[in-house]
Nucleic acid binder design. Structure first.
Length: 944
RNA sequence: GCGGGUGUGGCGUAAUUGGUAGCCGCGCCAGACUUAGGAUCUGGUGGUGAGAGCCGUGGGGGUUCGAGUCCCCCCACCCGCACCA
């Protein structure tokens, strides 16, 4: 029988579908294992060969785990809300739901052809109302919660109202937008609206004016991770800064837990490090610098010399990681957005400061980043007092201080901070060294080319911390400011709150209506709030989001929230929903969640390191706090599959002609490289006729060949249509079959490594599959299996392979596993082994990699049950033991000869044996060896 | 600038974790069967040398009987962050 992959694959795919073989249920007495892929955004372009890479790996692992006795959950769905579908809708007027469905169907078709073991019964799209109901529900829970810093946990906002009524803000340690202070009386006498405004300061989902990344082209705001180099990730449009009222998630409240949680998960160091950097924890001090009431001439008279009550005076709170350098402060800098600028600017500097602030605020993000090295700033005319040295320091404004980190104000220590240094040099401000590598190594800052930023050394010119090393000095300064009541040690995080509003149509509507200008949640029993129909998907003329176009869309006459949620909303809890996807009463039932717990293996690209993977962890931690899920971390182990790059081919056109010259002859001509479709190139040899037919321009092309071939050049680039290097998995399935594609994608290299796609070489895997098939057939092509006892050698081949495949599966080393299959098959073919006792277990081993061919063989072997449900063979050490071992014998580390010893010999026995061996004696040549090193089963080394 | 990673034949990679470097596959070379091959099968294939041998894992040094693997310095490339005080 011929190996007819087309027939076999379509036959089994249909059978699997008809029998719903991949349906998963809770099985109480069986251990669970949850394998999840990052679900795809179904774009119009369909899948390319890079997409399935991770899916194939996770599918292999799922199948393997199942055969190892686990109840494996392996679902798949679609991240379906988002910009591309909506952009397309704006251009064509076609409803995004329709294009999304079309794309989803195409994806499903492509995925089905590859033979995945997904449980499609659990599938959903994030745009399904049954699902986004729970996205909306979670949002309401966030809205109705605050973060208790003391207990490190989200709590119901109702508790806070109760607390305010009793204590006001007294003794409160909770996450907040702005510091607030009021009494119980203040609270109790406040109006409903005032109360709502106060609560907004604490909600985990809150509405606030904020500086946003506004993308005019897309007509929406974007999160920090959606902007790269001042351009939108989707579309690459310029992004501006704009002050807007937005929904925001208080992700920052969870910064410390998000950081600590990284210690409990099994992720790669690189992605943990990316997240640590993104969270950006900095220890330091908050210190108040009071405003000097007058300028330098008589500051001494005005300075009080004591600091009680300083918090209530006009004072600037700064954050520094270097409190040890406080004696080196020579000026202060406020960010252009700082609210105190207008009140402190002296009349003679007013115009200049206003101009600067305006200029800085209106600069686009891209301009700002492009001119990052340019120093700019203005003096306000006012002075602050260094509370430790009592010195007057000028207050400047500059955009190198960011409004959304720390307090938007810094103490500048130019000697020990490169940015302050550049600023001081530019504006001729004093630079005073206060830290030196040692007391002997003090130099003159006037001679420096750069500041001394190192956080090591001893303090000099520094009053009471003179001579202390910087670490202790920092602590001492924090103690001092604490005692003085003007500061404290604190921790700052780079992680910002996440802006949660998008002024777009194709997203989850907020379950929010407005009463008296304040937002209120829609009652939970009225969810989901369905996405209303609109006549057009554009913003309204007044600049409102598209949802403002919806007719009769309100809640009991109250206005709805018109923005929609961002892409990450829907992808932040989908893994929980797969546990219980059809539940109408809860996001996930307690029962389902207690059984499936969390994702054991999550597979997806590293590009989500600072987006999805942070938001999902935040979201999960919140759901954990409110008791929806039982695990604090959503993804126990994470594998980041490397990006698949394209491998482009080039032809070289002789300038000014239609003549093309082969790669190695091109130096004799003046040529321009031109991308050529990789599908008409095989092993870098151009199919000349196909090339002529490829494009009208090349119809009359002439070629300068080498050895009768036209050799193309190649380069690794991004996979893209314009580079003609896109490989479609469907074409490969058509030509080689799904099993070959699956194995070739794994064979390409380690799963985590970025690698170029190169179809050259798939033939090798295809050959292997055909060879594997031949194992089960005789020379006449008839299925032929013998029930004879296997030989020792055959058992060794089998068990060596079982061990190797099991090890490789466990460490996700699928490329080496494929090699092991090839070796095993070659060895068995050579041994002409057709024994059932060998080929049956082998079929199970391979079934995770090549499910179709193994299913066919499994059924030919006489099984009714699918190989999917077979049990992974157990490897037996006994068969691996050799009768004798061959030891390489080396002299002084150089290999000289080989000696055989019985397997049960121990190194001790071997030593005299070795030295008595005639071959060894020859090498010893009468010399006494210094020592004989014997590594069991490995090597013997004799050292003179 | 800071952080993380990678570097092995013509190419993708492997190396039992400190023990014979180059497994497996592509490509290439030779042969077999063929009217033919972008089919199939067999053998060869790191460099150099007639040869025993010598050289060889980005470069340099070190530890060790022994280093692709461990330590130090340098180089190249990739990824992430980037005025985060």
């Amino acid at each position: 029988m011929e190996y007819n992959f087309k027939e076999i694959e379509s036959k089994w795919q249909k059978k699997w579908k008809d029998s719903n073989i991949y349906k998963t249920d809770i099985i109480e007495n069986k251990q669970k294992f949850y394998v999840l892929d990052m679900f795809p955004y179904p774009s119009g372009a369909g899948l390319h060969v890079g997409h399935p890479l991770g899916y194939i790996a996770s599918d292999i692992y799922s199948r393997y785990k199942r055969q190892k006795g686990f109840n494996v959950l392996h679902p798949m769905g679609y991240d379906a809300f988002g910009l591309p579908a909506e952009q397309y809708a704006i251009q064509t007027g076609q409803h995004p739901a329709i294009t999304t469905d079309k794309n989803v169907n195409r994806y499903r078709e492509q995925l089905d052809k590859i033979g995945f073991s997904f449980d499609w019964n659990r599938s959903f799209k994030t745009c399904d109302p049954d699902y986004y109901k729970w996205t909306q529900w979670t949002f309401i829970q966030l809205f109705n919660s605050y973060y208790d810093n003391k207990n490190k946990k989200a709590r119901p906002i109702a508790e806070l109202e109760f607390y305010f009524a009793k204590n006001g803000t007294n003794d409160l340690d909770i996450a907040q937008t702005e510091p607030q202070s009021f009494t119980a009386n203040d609270w109790n006498s406040a109006s409903e609206k005032e109360k709502q405004e106060i609560l907004m300061n604490y909600r985990l989902a809150y509405l606030a004016d904020t500086w946003v990344n506004w993308c005019p082209e897309l007509g929406t705001v974007l999160a920090n991770d959606e902007v790269v180099n001042g351009l939108s990730v989707r579309g690459g449009f310029p992004v501006e800064r704009k002050l807007m009222k937005q929904w925001i998630l208080r992700v920052s409240a969870y910064a410390e837990r998000l950081l600590q949680g990284l210690n409990d998960v099994d992720w790669s160091d690189s992605i943990k490090e990316i997240q640590r950097n993104w969270i950006g924890r900095s220890e330091g001090a908050a210190i108040w610098f009071p405003l000097a009431k007058q300028g330098p001439s008589d500051w001494k008279d005005l300075y009080m010399g004591h600091f009680e009550g300083i918090k209530n005076e006009p004072a600037f709170e700064i954050f520094t990681t270097r409190p040890d350098t406080i004696f080196g402060v020579s000026f202060m800098v406020l960010c252009p957005e700082h609210e105190m600028i207008s009140s402190i600017t002296t009349p003679e500097h007013k115009e200049e400061v206003e101009n600067y602030v305006n200029w800085a605020k209106n600069r686009s993000e891209r301009e700002r980043q492009a001119e990052i090295k340019k120093v700019s700033g203005v003096f306000t005319g006012s002075f602050a007092i260094n509370p430790i040295t009592n010195e007057l320091i000028p207050i400047w404004v500059s955009d190198y201080v960011l409004s959304d980190y720390g307090t938007g104000a810094i103490m500048a220590v130019p000697a020990h901070d490169s940015r302050d240094f550049a600023f001081a040099r530019h504006f001729n401000l004093p630079i005073r060294q206060v830290v030196a590598p040692s007391l002997e190594e003090i130099s003159n800052p006037a001679d420096w080319n750069e500041s001394m930023d190192s956080k090591t050394g001893v303090c000099i010119n520094s009053g009471f911390i003179n001579g202390m090393d910087v670490k202790n000095a920092g602590k001492a300064v924090i103690e001092m400011v604490k005692e003085m009541g003007i500061g404290y040690g604190t921790i700052n995080y780079r992680l910002r709150d996440a802006i949660f509003s998008r002024q777009r149509y194709w997203g989850e509507p907020f379950p929010i209506y407005y009463k008296d200008g304040m937002p209120y949640p829609i009652p939970e029993n009225e969810l989901p709030v369905l996405l209303p129909e609109v006549d057009q998907f554009l913003p309204t003329e007044s600049g409102e989001p598209p949802l403002a176009r919806a007719k009769n869309w309100n809640y009991n006459g109250y206005t709805m929230e018109f923005s929609t949620m961002p892409g990450f909303a829907g992808s932040s809890a989908y893994y929980l929903r797969y546990m219980d996807p059809h539940n109408n009463d809860a996001l996930v039932s307690k029962e389902a969640n207690n059984y499936w717990q969390q994702v054991d293996l999550y597979v997806g690209g590293a590009e989500h390191g600072t987006g999805h993977l942070i938001y999902a962890r935040f979201w999960n931690k919140f759901l954990f706090d409110i008791g929806v899920c039982c695990k604090d971390e959503p993804f126990k182990k994470l594998i980041n599959q490397g990006m698949i790059q394209g491998r482009s081919n080039f032809v070289y056109r002789v300038v000014g002609s239609n003549k093309f010259v082969s790669l190695n002859l091109k130096n004799d001509y003046q040529t321009t490289p031109i991308h050529v479709d990789v599908n008409i190139v095989h092993n870098d040899i151009l199919d000349v006729d196909a090339f002529k037919n490829w494009m009208p321009d090349f119809k009359d092309a002439e070629f300068v060949l080498e050895n009768g071939h036209y050799i193309c050049g190649w380069e690794v680039e991004k996979m893209s249509k314009s580079k003609y290097n896109v490989q479609n998995p469907d074409d490969l399935v058509e030509k080689y079959g799904a099993d070959t594609l699956r194995m070739y994608e794994m064979f390409l290299g380690p799963i985590e490594m970025a690698k170029p796609w190169d179809t050259n070489g798939i033939e090798g895997v295809f050959r292997f599959i055909k060879k594997f098939w031949r194992l089960y057939f005789d020379e006449n092509g008839d299925f032929s299996i013998s029930d004879d006892e296997p030989t020792k050698q055959e058992l060794k081949i089998l068990h060596k392979t079982i061990k190797k495949i099991e090890d490789d599966n466990e460490r996700f080393s699928f490329n080496t596993a494929v090699s092991a299959f090839m070796i095993c098959t070659n060895e068995l073919l050579e041994a002409k082994c057709n024994k059932r006792s060998i080929l049956e277990p082998l079929c199970i081993l391979l079934s995770a990699y090549a499910p179709h061919i193994t299913e066919e063989l499994w059924s030919l072997l006489g099984f009714n049950e699918s190989v999917f449900n077979a049990t992974f063979p157990v490897y037996n050490e006994q068969f691996l033991q050799d009768d004798e071992y061959v030891y390489p014998v080396s002299f002084n580390g150089k290999m000289r000869l080989k000696m055989s010893f019985p397997a049960n010999f121990t190194p001790k026995d071997i030593e005299p044996e070795v030295l008595a061996n005639p071959d060894v004696l020859k090498w010893l040549d009468g010399k006494n060896p210094k020592k004989v090193i014997i590594v069991p089963k490995k090597i013997v080394n004799i050292v003179f």
